[in-house]
Amino acid sequence: MVVPLPASRRARLLEILERDGAIRLESAAAELAVSVMTVRRDIQDLDADGLVRRVRGGAVSIVLPRVFGDRAMTRASAKNSVARKAEALVPSVGAVGVDASTTSGALLAIIRCERLLVVTNSVDNAAIARARPGVRAVLAGGEFEQQTGSLVGPTAEQTARSFAYDVFFTSASAVDAATGTMEVSLEEAAVKHAFAARARTTVVLADSSKLGQQALALALEWNVIDTLVTELDPSDDRLDPFRGLVEIL
């Protein structure tokens, strides 16, 4: 049996991270046909290079700001699965708030409505919403965040607070069972908080790579979140830390 060279092995570990959302020591070792200790050392090296973050039992991604187009191409299949699940939660008539996430964009791309107002702080998501029959889109003003493509700051927060929403759909940079959803900046978190404060129901759309991670700024605590939608089967044990906190779809 040919054992991959260190550089090749670490490249394959990063591919596993992209595919699965996390590197798990035992399963990665089995896939690469090496020892768990070898994978642990590789993860230490990747962590030292700033490419992953070590956690108990393996590693997860480093959460950094990325532009909309780059985020849209990452785990697209999982995001589309999340969107299909969440479609049933979109009212045909009424108003919804939508954040600047690409998972929310995947949802907007498939909605069918009679008369729905969509308010968002994303230029990209506003364009997606405007293309849907029966949808009127309102784009929040504010300061354009180059790294994420979203609109942030006091004007964006004020616009978010200016409407009453049946549902606020939001994703997250990270979803932590102990704290709630987290974002790459305080400004991003503040806009999401403003949307949630005016919504009757808040739905978090998160593919499984976000679960158990942490990012810079706390956005929404669990007491303001009603539903968590992932691509996983609701019985999946990766969702166990979130049971009892919210409804899981």
Rank of each mutant, 00 (worst) to 15 (best):
D20W: 06
D20E: 12
D20P: 11
G21N: 02
G21D: 01
A22L: 05
I23K: 04
I23A: 06
I23T: 10
E26W: 09
S27R: 13
A28Y: 02
A30Y: 01
A30M: 00
V34K: 05
V36P: 00
V36D: 00
M37H: 13
M37T: 07
V39E: 05
R40A: 01
R40H: 06
I43L: 13
Q44M: 07
D45K: 12
L46C: 12
A48K: 14
A48H: 13
D49L: 14
G50K: 12
L51V: 14
V55T: 11
R56W: 11
G58K: 01
G58M: 04
G58L: 04
G58P: 00
A59H: 08
V60A: 08
I62R: 14
V63Y: 06
V63N: 06
L64N: 15
P65F: 14
P65T: 09
P65A: 13
R66M: 13
V67P: 04
V67W: 01
V67Q: 03
F68I: 09
G69E: 04
R71G: 01
A72S: 07
T74P: 00
A76V: 12
A78S: 08
K79C: 06
K79Q: 09
N80L: 11
S81N: 06
V82C: 07
A83P: 00
R84H: 07
E87A: 10
L89Y: 07
L89K: 08
V90F: 02
S92L: 10
V93K: 02
A95Y: 12
V98E: 02
S101M: 09
S101T: 13
T102I: 04
T102A: 10
T102G: 08
T103P: 00
L107T: 02
L107V: 06
I110T: 03
I111M: 14
C113K: 09
E114H: 15
E114T: 15
R115I: 07
R115D: 12
L117Q: 08
L117R: 05
V119T: 02
T120D: 15
S122T: 10
S122C: 13
D124K: 07
D124R: 11
N125H: 02
N125R: 06
A126W: 11
A126S: 13
A127M: 09
I128K: 05
P133R: 09
P133D: 02
A137N: 05
A137R: 03
G141R: 14
G142S: 14
G142W: 07
G142V: 11
E143G: 04
E145T: 10
E145L: 12
Q146P: 10
G149D: 02
G149E: 08
L151Q: 01
V152K: 01
